[in-house]
Design a protein around this nucleic acid. Structure first.
Lengths: 112, 112
DNA sequence: ATAATATATCCGCATATCCGCTTATAATCA
DNA sequence: TGATTATAAGCGGATATGCGGATATATTAT
């Protein structure tokens, strides 16, 4: 029960929901997320660490860049919740705005 | 986004998950929940209020008794999450133990 | 009205959580 | 090696959250 509560706790913050909402579609690095969300590096980094420690994200380093993605190997509750998030977050105003901002960046100056 | 975070926050506590797990099956009153979870009245009452304020529960008074149940009229995320909880909580050791304790009470001394 | 029962709310306490700035660490290049 | 870039982690501050005991409120019976 406590581990389930922990999974939900990771989702109970707006910034973290925004991050997860972006990562539903593709792997991203910290600087992309920073740019899109327009948040300080330390804030983004802390939230990414929280999501990773809670079991939602994997990370990999590529040179100076750290890429984060949603775990492949989640349990059935996680899979179920991700499906719920996909269906319910994608239409939200803020999520749409974030994704549009990401598209803008992908055409111009992304880190990789 | 904030309201979604709030829905998840309501689920990010073990006691509240246990309460919700019981209410997945039937409406219960505060004293039933207290007895099953073996928690003080103020603790149970506070958590029920939190779940209600977050949009997960309805309440109705019947004499001195307050009955709580899961909302019928939740949004699609809520419906989706409840489905996930149904599938994933019911087999958990603690949830099973709680339900068994509830069955024991239902055959002997329940408030109603 | 008083007493009893059920429950909501208050209270103080301890801990957790979020924030952004600062510092430490990792990787790369000259 | 030192400098630069990217990112993790530390720090202090403000706020939120969980706890259980005490008190307030609601309902019912006498």
């Amino acid at each position: 029960m406590k581990t389930i509560a922990r999974l939900f706790k990771a989702l109970s913050d707006e910034t973290r929901l925004r991050i997860l909402s972006l990562l539903l579609y593709e792997e991203l690095c910290v600087c992309d997320i920073m740019a899109v969300l327009q948040l300080p590096q330390s804030t983004v980094s802390r939230h990414l660490a929280y999501l990773k420690n809670a079991g939602w994200l994997d990370d990999r380093r590529c040179g100076v860049w750290m890429y984060y993605s949603i775990v492949d190997s989640g349990n059935s509750l996680q899979k179920s919740l991700l499906e719920s998030l996909r269906e319910n977050l994608s239409g939200l105003e803020m999520a749409v705005a974030d994704r549009e901002r990401l598209c803008g960046f992908s055409q111009h100056n992304r880190c990789a």
